[in-house]
């Protein structure tokens, strides 16, 4: 099976090393780490990741600014992004149903099993379901006229 490429953008070196190790240990992912936000767009364009793990608060350029940059690059526009952040607790993330602005958020410290599960689901599901956080259930689909 071909390994899925994951780009991790976070300025915390020990944290990125730990997540990279956990993801690569599954044998399903090839992880590239970028600790310098200003180089992240170039790294993403070169690496062509299947998904991006993105820290929210970083020096010089934050996650929101990077997301806006990705939107201007055709190749990255539709790449799924998981936001990793220490700004919210597990409880707050739960209250937000794991979503901020249609993006999946994972609070730090990251539960490696949960992150792997999220990536597995995200990279195997059709685009619309993870982009909007969930699939429409049968009872939400209007009956035929």
């Amino acid at each position: 099976m071909e390994k899925k490429r994951i780009l991790m953008i976070d300025d915390e070196v020990p944290f990125t090393n730990l997540v990279k190790m956990n993801l690569e240990r599954t044998g399903r992912y090839e992880v590239r780490v970028e600790n310098h936000p200003l180089q992240a767009v170039a790294a993403a364009l070169e690496f062509k990741p299947a998904a991006i793990l993105l820290d929210v608060v970083m020096p010089q350029m934050d996650g929101g600014q990077l997301l806006a940059e990705f939107q201007t690059k055709g190749q990255l526009k539709n790449t799924p992004v998981i936001l990793l952040t220490a700004t919210v607790t597990q409880q707050v993330a739960k209250a937000l149903q794991g979503q901020v602005g249609c993006r999946t958020i994972v609070p730090k410290p990251v539960d490696a099993k949960r992150l792997i599960q999220l990536l597995d689901e995200m990279l195997e599901m059709p685009f619309f379901s993870f982009r909007f956080g969930r699939s429409a259930s049968a009872d939400e689909v209007p009956p035929p006229a």
């Binding site: 607790t89 409880q91 901020v100």
Partner: peptide, 17 residues
């Protein structure tokens, strides 16, 4: 902190600071 964080996070993620 909990009350203030959510709107701040939303603004940052939307790049509308």
């Amino acid at each position: 902190v909990e009350l203030d964080t959510t709107p701040v996070l939303k603004d940052i993620v939307a790049n509308q600071v």
